[in-house]
Amino acid sequence: MRTPIRNVLWAVLVLWGTIIFACSCGSNRAGSGSGSALQIKGSDTMVNLGQAWAEAFNKLHPEINVAVTGGGSGTGIAAILNGTCDVAESSRAIDEKEIQQAKAAGLNIRETIVALDGIVVVVHPSNPISSLTMDQLREIFMGNVMRWNVFGGEDRPIVLLSREVNSGTHIFFKEHVLRRGKSKGPEEFAPGALMMPSSYAIAEETANNENVIGYYGLGYISPRQKVLAVARDDRSPAVLPTIDSVRANAYPISRPLYFFTRGDPSGAVKDFLEFALSPEGQKIVRDTDFVPIK
């Protein structure tokens, strides 16, 4: 009777010991930027890009272990502020509230633009419309125009697909298209806009439904959806989103992608940053369907 219980107690003790040991090791690593592990966190848009960078970087520096996780741009910036990651990936600039938080904590947060992203507007392949102006997009996504035939399309209702509010893409589209570039404004997505949990969900619904219009990053373009050309205004030509048109700033809905780091980068963080901006790193940007900055 006695031995089994004692064995169980020992097993529990050993287990706890292991867990505590593992936890303390983990937190040590995450805390220091120059250690053998690099925590990268943030924008869901940039997860694949970060992963590709991490893999290639790991071949050059096998001693540095890079972990990339998503969660959204805000999650990443929050993590860099409270020190649970070394590099925050973000598809939007740092906002006023976050700058205040950094100041309060006595942190010097440094931003680096590492790539560009175009947001494409997509419809079902059978939709006869092939281009819209920024103002027309604004009217559509605010719910002021609710049928396709207003723009010469078929007599169908317009169903709006948007990302959730936790997405950097949602915020960028709202500020850039709905609010014409102002970050604060009264304009909102129509209450009836469907909030999709992922770019995948938008792509899937767009491929299956003739009524919808949606938006997502350049990286998600596939032949199952039709990409619209967008004109800055009535007088400008409509431009299709491509790597060249985004880099030339001819395509109106594009944005920079950022790395945020604490203070002046050193050690592994500096190596990683330099790698991302190197010709090899920028080639990976192109390979993952984003737009290189050089």
């Binding site: 936790n166 909030m195 999709m196």
Partner: peptide, 24 residues
Amino acid sequence: GNAAVIPHSLFEPVRTLTATIAAE
């Protein structure tokens, strides 16, 4: 569909309490 509008029938998009917490 997660659209935060007051629904009038089962054939419209809705947003639930749980999905709102999870998404945001």
